Simulated assay, not measured.
Amino acid sequence: MFDRLKGEFHRQDDASSTAGSSTRPPPPAYDGPPPNARPTSTSKETNRPYERPEPTFRTNFGSVSLHMGDRIRLMGLPPEITAAIRSTLQQTWPNGIQDERGYHGSVEFKLRGYPWSPTGDDAIHARRVTRGIMATLYSHGWVLYISTDISRKPGDKDNLFFRHQDPPPAPREWFSCTFSKGDRIRLIDAPESVVQDMIRTLQGYIQTHRPYHVSGTYEIKLNGSPFAASGGETMVSRVLCLELFEVLERNGFTLYASIDQKYGGQHGTETDSWQMSRPVGWSPGAPVYHQ
């Protein structure tokens, strides 16, 4: 039964197709672009098609890496930025630049002394060097993209990658924070309001605090050894970090970079150095944006 009805349906369809074949217009022809053609639009003035321009946005990246005990290598940065960093090194490192050369596609500065394996006061100045480099790059629109360890070599340090922005971001002010000897926090060039707020916040953890003998530096000595702890004491350093972040936020600062910049021997046991920044002109109560 079903087959007979299906056959009648096809005969009726064929008959109607034949009857209309003499009057039915041919299907329209569509002359579309080839598969790989670029998209076009129509100009309102001339009603003529034109090709859309290729995108012009392009992001540039650059690299600053720390090597051995005394080298800085720049890659992907234009000559004017290299010149600005050269000036920054001369201002922030008391021993100055010993040599400059090209090195396998990079520009290498060799500093006098050993900023990445420092002794005494050089440890403070070495943090000013890396902070000065980041602040200089930031002022020219080169914003830190990532601080990362990409080497398994003993004694390796972080590689800093920067992304260029145009126009440059708004100016910022900076200070450094280091964790020393297992029980010390050193604030380098921090505003006095930050120092006093940190002392109040950490008073239950503090053994002593005083201005450090290097100008612009304040040292807080903590109870125990939270940065060289074991067992349950390891969580004290985490609590301290949470407290430090709250102090930073209350004062308009954010953590811009955490950098392994010191040679830690064969086992790489050094702590990071923190570099903080906030917008110039920030006032209490204003929002704080992480950058």
Score class of each variant (00 low, 15 high):
197 D>F: 11
212 Y>S: 08
277 S>M: 05
80 E>Q: 15
215 S>I: 05
13 D>A: 05
273 S>F: 00
243 E>S: 05
223 N>S: 02
237 S>F: 00
21 S>N: 02
260 D>Q: 11
30 Y>H: 15
32 G>T: 10
74 L>C: 01
257 A>P: 09
148 T>I: 12
121 D>Y: 00
166 D>N: 13
142 W>D: 00
237 S>I: 09
224 G>S: 12
172 R>G: 07
263 Y>R: 00
288 V>M: 04
97 I>C: 05
203 Q>W: 10
159 N>S: 12
54 E>R: 15
83 A>K: 15
239 V>S: 08
262 K>G: 02
167 P>H: 04
91 Q>H: 12
29 A>Q: 04
226 P>E: 06
285 G>K: 00
272 D>N: 10
105 G>E: 06
212 Y>P: 06
39 P>R: 05
201 T>G: 10
141 G>Q: 03
145 Y>G: 05
144 L>I: 08
206 I>W: 09
27 P>V: 01
131 R>C: 13
134 M>Q: 09
137 L>N: 02
190 A>M: 11
54 E>S: 14
276 M>D: 08
112 R>Y: 07
76 G>F: 04
38 R>C: 10
33 P>H: 09
70 D>N: 14
178 T>A: 09
63 S>F: 05
181 K>I: 01
178 T>W: 07
6 K>H: 07
198 M>G: 11
208 T>K: 15
58 R>K: 15
269 T>G: 07
197 D>Y: 09
164 H>A: 11
104 H>C: 07
54 E>I: 11
41 S>T: 14
178 T>S: 15
82 T>E: 11
103 Y>G: 00
201 T>C: 14
188 I>V: 15
49 P>C: 11
271 T>A: 03
140 H>K: 14
217 T>A: 13
221 K>Q: 05
216 G>A: 02
148 T>K: 10
35 P>D: 07
251 N>M: 10
167 P>M: 07
243 E>N: 10
80 E>M: 12
70 D>A: 09
146 I>F: 02
210 R>N: 14
143 V>D: 09
103 Y>S: 14
242 L>V: 05
52 R>D: 13
217 T>H: 06
219 E>A: 11
14 D>R: 04
200 R>M: 14
102 G>A: 01
168 P>K: 11
152 R>E: 15
144 L>T: 02
28 P>V: 03
184 R>T: 03
179 F>L: 11
285 G>A: 00
92 T>P: 15
88 T>V: 06
106 S>G: 03
178 T>M: 12
142 W>V: 01
188 I>K: 08
282 W>Y: 04
278 R>L: 03
224 G>F: 09
22 S>Y: 08
60 N>Q: 14
20 G>A: 01
283 S>M: 13
187 L>M: 15
125 H>V: 01
70 D>R: 12
226 P>L: 01
187 L>A: 03
255 L>I: 14
20 G>M: 00
156 D>K: 11
98 Q>V: 01
128 R>G: 13
244 L>N: 06
208 T>M: 11
279 P>K: 03
248 L>H: 09
73 R>Y: 14
53 P>Q: 10
125 H>S: 05
222 L>N: 06
14 D>C: 00
86 R>H: 15
93 W>L: 05
87 S>C: 03
243 E>W: 10
161 F>V: 08
173 E>P: 08
82 T>K: 06
66 L>S: 08
190 A>H: 09
74 L>N: 03
168 P>M: 10
203 Q>H: 15
